[in-house]
Each structure stands twice: as structure tokens, then as C-alpha cells.
Design a protein around this nucleic acid. Structure first.
Lengths: 194, 194
DNA sequence: ATCTACCCTTAACCTAGATTAAGAAATCAG
DNA sequence: CTGATTTCTTAATCTAGGTTAAGGGTAGAT
């Protein structure tokens, strides 16, 4: 029995025929990962495109001083991959790590390309998906520019209410580009206003 | 006679047939703009996808204190649009302004969608194009995280050598997220090292 | 060719956020 | 259930980069 979460997600874009669903069943591989387990490590090539059935991940880079910087989070019914490395097949500068014990479905590059050829409507779906990802990333750039740490934190709470009470503050701080200590100060300051 | 720059650019992805080229000729509109002229103003919907034949543009947002923040530059043989607004047809938060007197080719959303339908390979071209844009933006996010202003400036010089000696420092500062005064300090500091 | 608007730099002072340290609270794995 | 690890917070001190102001240089429009 194939996982309904993925099919439902894809059909939220365009309905699929039974034989198309069967092709997916064939190519996606189910996998369980533990908390803190990495599904991509910097220096490797990103060979899998991952759909998250259950759980939560972060994608992060490490700077020259050894500090980690979260670029994005992803949870249920979302996709995660280093798109740059996946499409260019060059080594990735990024890591993808489970923040909770998670369940996922993965497809290899060559199998995804097979599906692009044999299920043409998948091109449209993935074009729209990457457009969404692009827009999300652009909003992130915009938000980073235009705000103090407090404004960015409030923006984050608004944009990711389902994640904000699920992620440790230390991970949120890393996403916002500030230290956990300063986030603590910011939170205190917000509370004293309310 | 149709503009060769656009055709050459598109054919760098996939060769086109004569009748396909004719369709482009029909749908793209040539336009000249002066320095400082805006081709998109925040609050409007981005209705045109723009190919730059000659000249140079910046895309920027304005924060709540009235400060401008450059998100990207684009010059000859590159495309510029607020992809978010263009695809969603919601009002844009961004402005696109000519930094030099420029020559461009524009296509309206409905005409581009017409071409997507009638020249199917254009879907592939635009999928790859947006993948490139996504990768560029992700690199920008990564670079912003991982560096001091000096490192980011050096990274900018490396990544955009053709633009760095063409743009006023004040625009570069806005891209890097620092003040022109501080960029001046950074430049001085770099020189005294060399 | 020249006037005007923009651009670059310097310097003195100021603030948001980093760093370090350390204790209390929460969460995870066995 | 319990010890081990992670997480959250506070506070003192420090620094990268912002702000303001002002002079000189450069490039665009007419």
C-alpha cells in the first residue's frame, strides 16, 4: 500500500492517473531517520530529493569560524534537498539534519528525471514547486534586510506558527542570524511590552 | 529584423526552429528606458518579464524606515522580473530601476503563457532559468550569513567582476546590506593590507 | 562647457547585537 | 524513571557597523 501523503500532496497540484501513481510507488523509497541524523552532509553530492511524511528537518551551512546557519526548515508534506547540488551534481556546501525522528520518501536524481520524461505533468508540478521555493527564499532575503532582530523574530512567528512552537529557540536563532542569548533578550523584551 | 541577443540567449539552452523564432518576434516588445527610470514600482503587479539587451538594472525593496535594499542586479543577456508578483499576479513589494540608459525586450504574462503552451520546450528553458535564479539567491543567503562585511564585499567582487567596476559603490553597499560610509572604510582597510 | 546633482571619503561618536560565563529548566535515551 | 545532554535565561563587557556631518571629486544633462 502506497503512502497517501505524497499522492495527496501531488494531487493538490494536478490529479494523477492510477498508472502514474504506480510509477511513483516504484521509484520513491521509504526511510526512517533518527533525531540528529543527517540525510545530506556538506562535501557530498545531494543525490536524493526528499519528501517529508512525518518529522522535521533543517538545512544549514557552516561558516569559516565553525558556526552553523540555518537556511530553511521543512516539515510534513514539504520537500527538502539542496537544489543547487541536486541539479548540478556538484558537491554541496550544505547539511540536512533531522530535528525529530522522521519518516520520509526519497527519490534519486536519475529516477526523478525518468519520471519527468514519463509523467510530463510532473514538470509543471516541479516548476510550480520551485517557483514557490524561490518566492519563499526571496521573502527571506527581503525580511532579513528590512528589520531589526525583533522584527525578524515576529515575522518568523507569523510566517511559521506551526514551526515556532516546535523548534528549539537555538535553531530559530540560527535561522534569524542571531545568537540564542540575544534571542532570549528579544523574547523578554517582547513579553514586557505585551 | 529580430533581435539576435534574445535568440542567441535562448539557443544557448536549446536550439529553436524558424517558426518558433517567429512566435517570439511577435510577442516580445522592444523598449528603451532612461537612467533612473523604473520598469516596476512597489504596489503594482509585475506584468512583464524583461530580457536586457543592453544596460543594467537593480531590483530593490524599501524598508519601514525608507531605506532601499538592493536584492539583485541584472545586465546584458539576463532576465529581470519580480517572479513572485509575476506568477501570483499579486502586488509587488519591489522596484526595478535602470542604473544606465537601457534597451530591453518585454513580454506580458499572458503572452509568455501562450508561448509556454505553443513552444513546449520553453517550459524546460524557463525551469532551468528559475533553477539558476534559485541557486544564485541561495548563494546570496549563504554568503550573507557566513561573513563580515569585508568578506561579503570580496565575495561580491569575485562573483560579479563585470558589475563591480560598473556600479556606484552606493549601490554595492545597498546590496551588501551596509552603508556607503562603512563600505568606504572596508575598501580603505583592504587597500592598506595589499 | 559648465552647472548641478550625485558620489566618495574621513572622522567622531553611538547602538545593536556578540561574547563569555554560569546557573536553572526542560527533554531525551536507556 | 533517571542520569545525561541540551536548552533557556541573565548579566557584564566588548565590537562591528551605523549615524551624522561635512568637504572634495566626478559624471550627466543641457
Amino acid at each position: 500500500m502506497f503512502n497517501q501523503a505524497l499522492i495527496q500532496h501531488l494531487e493538490s497540484f494536478i490529479p494523477l492517473k492510477e498508472n502514474e501513481k504506480a510509477l511513483f510507488e516504484d521509484k520513491f523509497v521509504s526511510r526512517l531517520v533518527k533525531r540528529k541524523e543527517k540525510i545530506l552532509t556538506a562535501g557530498e553530492v545531494c543525490k536524493q530529493y526528499t519528501f517529508i511524511v512525518k518529522g522535521c528537518f533543517r538545512m544549514y551551512g557552516v561558516d569559516d569560524k565553525g558556526f552553523e546557519h540555518n537556511i530553511q526548515f521543512a516539515a510534513e508534506n514539504d520537500w527538502i534537498a539542496d537544489i543547487s547540488s541536486f541539479y548540478t551534481q556538484k558537491t554541496s556546501q550544505l547539511n540536512i539534519e533531522a530535528l525529530e525522528a522522521s519518516e520520509l520518501l526519497q527519490i534519486k536524481q536519475q529516477d526523478l528525471f525518468f519520471l519527468f520524461t514519463n509523467v510530463p505533468k510532473l514538470n509543471r508540478i516541479f516548476k510550480v514547486m520551485i517557483e514557490h521555493k524561490y518566492i519563499e527564499l526571496q521573502n527571506r532575503v527581503l525580511q532579513n534586510f528590512s528589520s531589526t532582530a525583533e522584527q525578524r523574530y515576529l515575522g518568523f512567528l507569523e510566517q511559521y506558527p506551526h514551526l515556532s512552537n516546535r523548534l528549539p529557540n537555538t535553531q530559530i536563532a540560527s535561522y534569524l542570524g542571531i545568537t540564542p542569548e540575544f534571542l532570549s533578550k528579544v523574547r523578554k523584551n517582547i513579553q514586557s511590552k505585551a
